[in-house]
Nucleic acid binder design. Sequence first.
DNA 1: TCCATATTTCTGCAATTATGGAAATATGAC
DNA 2: GTCATATTTCCATAATTGCAGAAATATGGA
Lengths: 104, 104
Amino acid sequence: MYADMLSAMGTEPRLRIMQLLLSAHPEGLVVGDIQEELEIPNSTLSHHLDKLKNENLVQVKRESTFLRYTANTEALQELMQFLYSECCTRNKALRPQDIVAICS
Amino acid sequence: MYADMLSAMGTEPRLRIMQLLLSAHPEGLVVGDIQEELEIPNSTLSHHLDKLKNENLVQVKRESTFLRYTANTEALQELMQFLYSECCTRNKALRPQDIVAICS
DNA sequence: TCCATATTTCTGCAATTATGGAAATATGAC
DNA sequence: GTCATATTTCCATAATTGCAGAAATATGGA
């Protein structure tokens, strides 16, 4: 459900986590790196990561002792497509060129 | 703040309100029409509209007894640009063409 | 003024969410 | 097995959010 995905990103700490993971894409980051960067207590961070994982916005992979989180670009793509569709295609409320300038 | 905008849309009733207002854009709808369409009790709907208004996602204008709400496309545009930038420009996590197909 | 309609505000309650310390678990090195 | 490190789970608490009935306010017409 898109509302749940939006809600999951609708908090400053979690939005920052997503931004950080996107900037580290596609390698992602292990929890400790995220913690050090964002200075969020470990249990709090773990809760946020869990929420993002539940909404499928991030993916996890264990690397021995570490857990490496990556942004789930497929889910983000779907969300963007949904928003784009609502704003620009289904109901021409916004012009595509006001959002992106591709056509490279 | 983008997190607050995402949060405001991160609820099923409010996301539906936004979709409805976008589909009625640019005329918008008066509260009674929204209520009839979405079947939300008036006080509950009023709270949702208030939240959307606080995050600048909708605009209101009085028409005698009625209040007409419209989607604030400028704010939506900014939000889409932000997400686009995070996903596609700043960090090339997603390819633009996976979200939009313009170049008409 | 009085009335009808539209919408919000007041109020309270229930449910959800955010937060973080402490304990538990997982993994690998020795 | 013991230890150190990484991360989560447990637990409690505070804060926010969602919801909706009832009362209040706004507007315009008779």
